[in-house]
Design a protein around this nucleic acid. Structure first.
Lengths: 219, 219, 219, 219
DNA sequence: CATGAATGAGGGTTCATTCAT
DNA sequence: AATGAATGAACCCTCATTCAT
């Protein structure tokens, strides 16, 4: 909930402030991220900052929203997944999309990652993020998968969702390091086609699928 | 490398300071953890702290060593795993031991976790920890598992090790939350016998095993 | 390189802070001079100080520049020396001007003196001051004096310059003590006319002149 | 006035402590010199230090005495000056002895220098040193020189003494730098014979002599 | 007599936030 | 709406000195 003044800003200025703030909060834990540093880099007055945002917390909240929104927006631009496909190819799509997001917006991804893994001083905020987030999403999919006979009936949906989510949030960085990817400005979907990337993706998904899928003989 | 002064302290005082420091560094990232807060809680003079430790970094280093040592010590007390068992029962033992450590020393576990996941301002220190740590350990086990025919030949050892490690470091906290466990002073191995715990453990390990084990038909 | 903040200050406040800082750095070596003491006396917040100056070093640098500038400014106001006069009357002018500066700005003079005689923790800064300073100035004058036949040919210019400079930087304080002079706010040139002062001045300069001047018989 | 305990120390230990303290006080102004650093380097207990000396001031006082005594002792070892020689050859002897002292004991010389040039927080101590010191010494010699007809009658003895003393205390360092001398452990009187050194010495003394000596024609 | 732990004031510096202009 | 000066608490760290053992 930044103030109206922020939204009334010329778009490029608003964007510049956001990006600088993103960089700061991606590089540092909440308490270490410095408003002073942000206004210094952005070349705006300290006072101006407090006319845009209530306080540090407000900015942080804005960044979380921004990151979430950017991620959603990117997902929309991706080729629609084959909805006829089974659950696991849908998982595959989710993981790949996540990697693409990390490649394109590593700092936003880092902020989201911090929100999950660190104690941000506002439990209520990240708690909500987590609820809205992937935990429930994965849990529901798995539960449905069990009902539909895609996922083995003995799988604990909550546990499996935890596991998926955990890997989900760390996989991007691993992927980038492993393949030596670098940030690209433009939306670049070649990942969908790169062989090495595909194989690594496949490898992960096959383990997950083999681990959780219903045994046909037991049906 | 704390100073002798620290080791010459009466054991209970030394322990008290350590525990308070552990609590502080478990609750906060390195830069946020406050020496002032520690001495305040410990009821010692600021100057005294610097008679014990070179500086903040020295204390942090001490805590990392302490946590590592406590973990090693606890592992030694656990029932020896069935070395004749296969790879996956060994994994199970590792994961269980880790959970036990987290239940007994949640704050120490948290410090280790931070060292892995956060940017501590001393790359060299955590880098060593990571090398000594679990990544290589898991990777080697998996590679050997492939050679021995326990693990499917198509599994990418590096990727699988990443996956295991990721889950490994987060599973403890999930486990504790899920089962509503609380810290116990004494070494309590009832986890090995608790039904609910066993089932959850089994569930995770079965997914992992099913996901990675060699398909007998393919041998 | 103080920040703009400092130069934007009302002139009297800026001046007050400068004077208090000058007093502190005149009374103490660099490491002993205390920012805390300065802000205490100036009645400003610690944080404000750091809005004005980068750090302690920045303040010190400012004071050096300030002192140098004040000296230059005072020299400009003095009656132009008789350029037709010989070398030694020019020396006399220099020494007298220096004494006048010390009488008017004893604390600034003291800061400059410290920069020469103490180990300030920034060799580069005082080194530059020294280069810009009097050593080369005196050495050149003496070398030229030898060429022109004013100074005895056997005089070692470097050594003589050292000697002159040494006396130059200490003479002011001696003069003040000897004559019981006190600081005067206004530019007071009566020194040029005071008999006792003139005689003392003459005495010093005559020794110097007799010591170095070329012997007419040897020409 | 160190305590008896200090003088009861084994000579080598006492000496070691002294030397380390000398090094510290030569390298830093009084307030910056650190007792903590001294006991650290000397490998003695903090408490022990305070059984040897009343406090920091007491140590400093001891160092001043020590330096003065060492200087006196060295002077005694030097070849007796030609007492039949005139005043200026006696000055020459004094200056040369001083340089020899600085070459052999640069840190002691530095401490004495600091006592003259810096504001040590105990005016009474350095004031006494100064009184006992060279100022009066030079002044008396000059006054007598005037009576004996060696020094020009117009010379102001106090002023001339100031001038001599000033050069006297700085000449050593200049000399060392100029000739690239380095500290020598053993008493080394080759300075008395080195040509370059002799010439530099001569140059200085000739200026002084020519500057102050009585003009035969005016007698 | 030697030890070294304990002290707390003080050092320079950064911070998020306020508010008058 | 924009500014940026002012604030003071908090940070890590060092100091000379004391005193119980």
């Amino acid at each position: 909930m930044p103030k109206d003044t922020f939204y009334n800003l010329p778009q490029d200025k608003r964007q510049r402030i956001l990006i600088i703030a993103v960089t700061e909060f991606a590089a540092n834990p909440y308490d270490v991220a410095s408003i002073s540093e942000i206004v210094r880099k952005a070349g705006i007055a300290k006072g101006s900052f407090y006319q845009y945002f209530e306080d540090k917390k407000d900015l942080y909240h804005t960044l979380i929203e921004y990151a979430t929104e950017e991620k959603r927006a990117l997902l929309e631009k991706l080729p629609v997944p084959d909805v006829n496909g089974d659950l696991f190819s849908y998982f595959r799509y989710q993981f790949l999309a996540n990697v693409i997001f990390e490649v394109h917006h590593p700092r936003l991804a880092q902020i989201i990652f911090r929100a999950f893994v660190e104690e941000v001083p506002f439990p209520e905020m990240t708690e909500e993020l987590r609820r809205r987030g992937t935990t429930q999403f994965f849990k529901q999919l798995i539960s449905q998968g069990i009902l539909h006979g895609d996922v083995a009936h003995w799988v604990d949906p909550d546990m499996a969702a935890f596991m998926l989510e955990t890997v989900f949030y760390q996989f991007g960085k691993y992927f980038i390091n492993r393949l030596g990817l670098t940030n690209t400005e433009d939306l670049d979907l070649s990942l969908f086609e790169d062989d090495q990337a595909q194989q690594l993706m496949d490898n992960l998904m096959e383990i997950i699928e083999a681990g959780m899928k219903a045994n046909p003989e037991n049906r």
